[in-house]
C-alpha cells in the first residue's frame, strides 16, 4: 500500500453556479484516469470537504478528457452576492481537492 496525494496524478479547476461549486479533476497522464474513477468517488469527496459541503456531491465522468466533474451542492454560503465567505465562488476548492490522499495497493503503484 502507498498513500499518494491527488496532486501527484491530477490537476484541477473549480468554479461556481449559485450555491453549488464545481470541481473538475483531470489526470495529468491519461493512463491514471482509471485511478481517479476508482478512488475519487462522490462519497470520498463529500467526506473530504466536511462541513464546507452541506448538500450532496454529484460526479460526472469525461473519459475523453481523462477528467471527473464534481458538483458540490450547498457549499458556498448561499453563493454569489449573498455569501459572506472569503471564497464565495469556490475558486480554491480545486486546490483543496488536490490535497486529498488515496491509498493505492501495490498492484496499482505508479
Amino acid at each position: 500500500m502507498k498513500k499518494i496525494q491527488l496532486r501527484e496524478i491530477a490537476h484541477a479547476r473549480s468554479g461556481d453556479k449559485g450555491d453549488t461549486a464545481n470541481v473538475g479533476l483531470i489526470a495529468l497522464n491519461p493512463k491514471h484516469y482509471p485511478l481517479l474513477v476508482q478512488y475519487v468517488t462522490a462519497d470520498r469527496v463529500k467526506q473530504h470537504f466536511g462541513s464546507i459541503c452541506r448538500g450532496k456531491v454529484e460526479r460526472f465522468e469525461l473519459p475523453n478528457l481523462g477528467a471527473l466533474n464534481f458538483l458540490l451542492h450547498e457549499s458556498l454560503g448561499g453563493g454569489g452576492t449573498v455569501s459572506l465567505k472569503t471564497d464565495a465562488q469556490g475558486k480554491t476548492y480545486a486546490a483543496a481537492l488536490l490535497r486529498m490522499t488515496i491509498e493505492l495497493p501495490d498492484s496499482q503503484l505508479l
Binding site: R13, S14, G15, G24, I26, F60, L65, N69
Partner: peptide, 12 residues
C-alpha cells in the same frame, strides 16, 4: 482541459 471543466455542470 482546465478551462473546459470550469463552471461545468452535467458534461453531456
Amino acid at each position: 482541459k482546465e478551462q473546459l471543466v470550469y463552471e461545468m455542470g452535467d458534461p453531456k
